[in-house]
Computed example of a mutant assay.
Amino acid sequence: MAHVGTATSAVGGAGRDLAGQYLDAAIGLLERVRDEEAGAVTEAGRLIADTVEAGGRIFVFGAGHSSLPAQDIVYRAGGLALVNLLAVPGTVGVDVMPATLGSALERVDGLAAAVLDTSPARAGDVLIVISLSGRNALSVEMAINARALGLKVIGVTSLAYPQATKSRHSSGTYLKDHCDVVLDNKIAVGDAELATDDIPAPFAPASTVVTCALVQAVVATAVGALAGRGITPPLLRSGNVDGGHEWNGRIMAEYRDRIFYRS
């Protein structure tokens, strides 16, 4: 975590310096991910490409703020049309009251099994599980149960947490222990990149920025792998460009048995 000098003004020079410090920290993390996770990104992209080629489907799950990178690759212009959000009601974001309910649900044993058993996921599919800490029962069990059903699991997490925190799953294990591929987003425990002498808590989280980029890098790799095999990737186009809706309609029709967010 970067430590910057005392802020003297929210608008003046120190305020601008904090913005620069945050952006520098985020860029530094992105550079680390680029340099240190290249092999895992390639492996994850190849796994997704293999699944698409074999007729399988792609699912992604994240709870709390980890749901944001998950949502970022679902029904997204420029993204693979076959990525489906595996949503657990009450855990997708701050759409429940109190907001702490979502955090509580992440610690409930057995919830992941119920979700997977009632989902369209099946053997041969891929599930991407995104969890910053990787310590809560929901993400751990999501990976365990998915593999038991015959899915391949890609985990996106911070490997700093298992070194500094205690697992909240009865097995004492973490998300990283139940994945076919693990992607480390390099986020420090606490997810705050800045601290100043006159502000009582660290601030400026970067996990969403970095994790979104990391997952998009995996999708880009999968797209490239498919094209390299002579397979046209099922990509979506923006509905805000001419012809976008028509293009997407054709993709939705062609892959309707593998897309579950369509009506």
Rank of each mutant, 00 (worst) to 15 (best):
M1D: 01
M1H: 09
M1R: 10
A2I: 14
A2V: 14
A2R: 15
A7H: 01
T8D: 14
T8N: 13
T8L: 12
S9E: 10
A10H: 08
A10S: 12
G12C: 04
G12I: 11
G12V: 07
G12D: 11
G13W: 04
G13D: 10
A14G: 13
G15S: 08
G15N: 03
G15P: 00
D17Y: 14
L18Y: 13
A19C: 07
Q21K: 09
Y22H: 12
Y22L: 12
A25D: 05
A25F: 04
A26T: 15
I27P: 00
G28N: 08
L30E: 13
R32D: 10
R32P: 00
V33T: 03
R34W: 03
R34C: 06
R34S: 15
R34A: 15
D35T: 12
D35H: 12
D35Q: 12
D35V: 11
E36C: 03
E36P: 05
A38S: 13
A40I: 01
A40F: 04
V41M: 00
A44F: 06
L47H: 07
L47D: 02
I48R: 11
I48F: 00
A49H: 08
A49C: 06
D50M: 00
D50T: 02
D50E: 15
E53F: 00
E53R: 10
A54S: 14
G55Q: 09
I58K: 01
I58H: 07
I58T: 08
F59W: 04
F59I: 04
V60A: 06
G62F: 09
H65S: 12
H65E: 04
H65F: 01
S66C: 11
S66L: 08
P69A: 11
A70C: 07
A70N: 09
Q71R: 15
D72H: 12
V74W: 03
Y75G: 01
Y75P: 00
R76Y: 04
R76E: 06
R76F: 05
A77D: 10
G78I: 03
G79S: 05
A81W: 11
A81S: 13
A81L: 06
L82D: 08
V83T: 15
V83N: 07
N84K: 05
N84Q: 02
N84M: 02
L86D: 10
L86R: 01
A87G: 03
A87N: 08
V88T: 14
G90N: 07
G90W: 05
